[in-house]
């Protein structure tokens, strides 16, 4: 298991053009090993740019990305190897499916790694299971699948590379509540079984609160908050001020507090709110 650290990382969109924008501004960060971390920020906060630096899709203009203490750009020719170690599932990944069958599509990454047929077969089946795909779907064409199944196939395509760090950019975007829950459950299960490090990028606070152990909040190309859920949600008003949606239940407890009802801050699940409020009646 390996870890990602970034030091003084900066990146500009459209560098040296009139449209130049500073997307990342001197970021120092360490992704904790062996757990699910959530990366939160509104559109344009730099979160998608940051994750594309982790696997060497984008090259920093300033600063370093370290994988196990080693600069990933030390040998630029070997950057592909970094991408196998740091798996990135992009937003709406179902658009990347291209093979005739789901099986072949999941095998695309492992094939690029130069693995043997039997090794590929093992990985494809394992990844499909992790992503919650029925084995009989493997021989189907990606275009015969439902939206949710396509999403899972695309995620399996990354898991099949057995990355040490798995990054998912908005894995549940556009899915209905049932699909959302089930995909997050699959990710949590995958993390538990494989013991790997997972980073989820999202702006859905409710999902993040439920599935992540640690949270990182970005705003304006910088890290604004970092810590476990409780620490982060105790700054609910700060989160709201930068255009983030805090969980409804956190909003409700904030309201009650404003009305003079004594509740401590940083409640972010319904169960917790229930426990605390029921005590007020006893």
């Amino acid at each position: 298991m390996s870890e990602i650290t970034v030091e003084k990382l900066s990146y500009f969109h459209g560098k040296d053009t009139p449209y130049e924008i500073k997307a990342l501004d001197g970021i120092d960060l360490k992704i904790q090993k062996g757990m699910i971390t959530g990366l939160i920020g509104h559109t344009g906060s730099g979160k998608s740019t940051l994750v594309q630096m982790f696997n060497g899709i984008l090259r920093p203009h300033e600063g370093k990305v370290l994988l196990d203490g080693e600069d990933i750009w030390k040998r630029p020719k070997d950057i592909r190897k970094i991408r196998f170690r740091v798996g990135l599932v992009m937003q709406y990944p179902e658009y990347q499916l291209f093979e005739e069958t789901i099986y072949k599509d999941i095998a695309y990454g492992p094939k690029n790694m130069g693995l043997s047929e039997s090794e590929i077969d093992e990985r494809v089946r394992e990844a499909a299971e992790f992503a919650g795909l029925e084995p009989d779907l493997l021989e189907k064409s990606p275009f015969d699948l439902s939206g949710g199944q396509k999403r899972r196939a695309a995620i399996a395509g990354i898991i099949a590379m057995r990355p040490e760090l798995l990054i998912l950019d908005e894995p549940a975007a556009g899915l209905d509540p049932r699909g959302r829950d089930s995909i997050f459950q699959n990710i949590a299960e995958y993390q538990k079984k494989s013991g790997s490090t997972v980073l989820i990028v999202s702006h859905s606070m409710e999902d993040m609160a439920r599935y992540c152990e640690r949270l990182i909040v970005m705003s304006g190309g910088k890290i604004m908050l970092e810590g476990n859920c409780r620490e982060v949600f105790s700054h609910a008003d700060l989160l709201e001020s930068v255009g983030l949606d805090i969980p409804q239940i956190t909003k409700l407890t904030m309201m009650l507090r404003e009305r003079g009802i004594e509740l401590d801050s940083s409640v972010y699940t319904v169960e917790e709110a229930f426990e605390k409020i029921i005590k007020l009646y006893s």
Binding site: P177, P247, Q248, I249, V270, A273
Partner: peptide, 10 residues
């Protein structure tokens, strides 16, 4: 497959 708002649930 639908969830009610958190406030209502509470």
């Amino acid at each position: 497959g639908l969830a009610i708002p958190q406030g209502t649930e509470l």
